[in-house]
């Protein structure tokens, strides 16, 4: 009987399944997966004669004095960029979400909509807006600080090696804070009100209720926000390119993996583009991102207790 139905199913090949799946699978494979594999393949070839040279490009990237300083500089800057996002963006995002989910809050959707607004705009626009605002030429920031009597602290932050990277990270935080805010918001509104009420009856105030009752329940979202931040940051490019150019000035102090990749692949000024090294850097970025995803999947998602509510 079983064999019979199976042979009948075989005879009538479900052609329509192929029709449904083919267009998306083909476009995705041809324009995303195959180029990715091609990039990986190129990272094992010599840039001069396309000969297979094994891991030589990776060895060059990590040990050659011409490359390794640039690579580690970009990597280190990228880590700083990420840490600023994790600390500032995600904690303020959580705070705003906690405020937004207070009971009987008026103007809730108004706040939500307006705070999310910068996230919608192009990074190019945001980069330029802040470049203008921080420009000593316009002097907006200086007079703003003067209002609080702090004008002596004004500096051209984007132009100084010591402050440019942090300033850019904070601009990016300002733009993307809406994403963690909304993700935390969505998680918090799904916490049943009875739990909150029970804690309140037991004498807990809003602060304790939040950290003891609500926060443990939204731990899965904390992980999602962290991994999204990680992938987004190690793939960032637009903001640095727009405000500081491909050379990620001053003196490469704002160079991150994305700008390093772009500069290597396309070249700039006197340096010619290098396809194989570009592919190698992209492969390193892929490794970094995969490492982050694996840490998230096995180090966080598997370990935390998920409560069914």
């Amino acid at each position: 009987m079983a064999a019979k139905t199976q042979s009948r199913a075989r005879k009538k090949f479900p052609f329509y399944i192929v029709v449904f799946l083919a267009p998306a699978t083909i476009i995705y494979t041809v324009f995303m997966i195959l180029p990715l594999i091609d990039s990986l393949r190129l990272s094992f070839l010599s840039n001069d004669n396309n000969q297979f040279i094994g891991l030589q490009n990776y060895v060059t990237l990590l040990t050659d004095p011409l490359w390794k300083d640039q690579f580690w500089n970009a990597f280190k800057n990228n880590v700083v960029f990420f840490v600023v996002h994790m600390i500032v963006q995600n904690s303020i995002g959580l705070l705003l979400a906690a405020m937004l989910t207070m009971r009987q809050l008026r103007f809730r959707s108004g706040y939500r909509t307006l705070i999310f607004m910068p996230t919608m705009l192009s990074v190019v626009i945001i980069g330029f807006i802040w470049k203008l605002i921080l420009s000593p030429l316009w002097g907006i920031s200086e007079s703003f600080l003067a209002f609080f009597g702090l004008e002596q602290f004004f500096q051209p932050w984007l132009g100084l090696e010591s402050t440019a990277l942090i300033t850019l990270a904070l601009i990016s935080v300002w733009q993307f804070i809406g994403i963690p805010m909304l993700l935390f918001y969505a998680a918090l509104i799904s916490v049943p009100y009875e739990l909150e009420e029970a804690a309140y009856v037991d004498g807990a105030n809003a602060w304790t209720t939040f950290w003891r009752v609500k926060f443990p329940l939204i731990l899965p979202t904390v992980g999602i926000v962290a991994i999204l931040t990680f992938v987004g940051n190690f793939n960032a490019f637009d903001l640095i390119y727009t405000t500081q150019g491909a050379l990620a000035g001053p003196n490469f102090s704002t160079d991150i993996m994305g700008t390093f990749f772009y500069r290597t692949f396309f070249g700039q000024q006197l340096q010619l583009g290098n396809q194989a090294m570009g592919a190698t850097i992209a492969a390193m970025m892929l490794l970094i991102i995969l490492a982050g995803v694996i840490v998230y999947l096995f180090g966080w998602q598997r370990r935390i207790t998920t409560y069914e509510v």
């Binding site: 995303m32 195959l34 180029p35 990715l36 990039s39 992209a282 892929l286 995969l290």
Partner: peptide, 18 residues
């Protein structure tokens, strides 16, 4: 679903060649 986590930019070298 792989493409949700892996940024397509990393395949830029291959995309430009293609």
């Amino acid at each position: 679903a792989l493409g949700i986590m892996i940024p397509i930019r990393l395949g830029t070298v291959g995309i430009l060649r293609l």
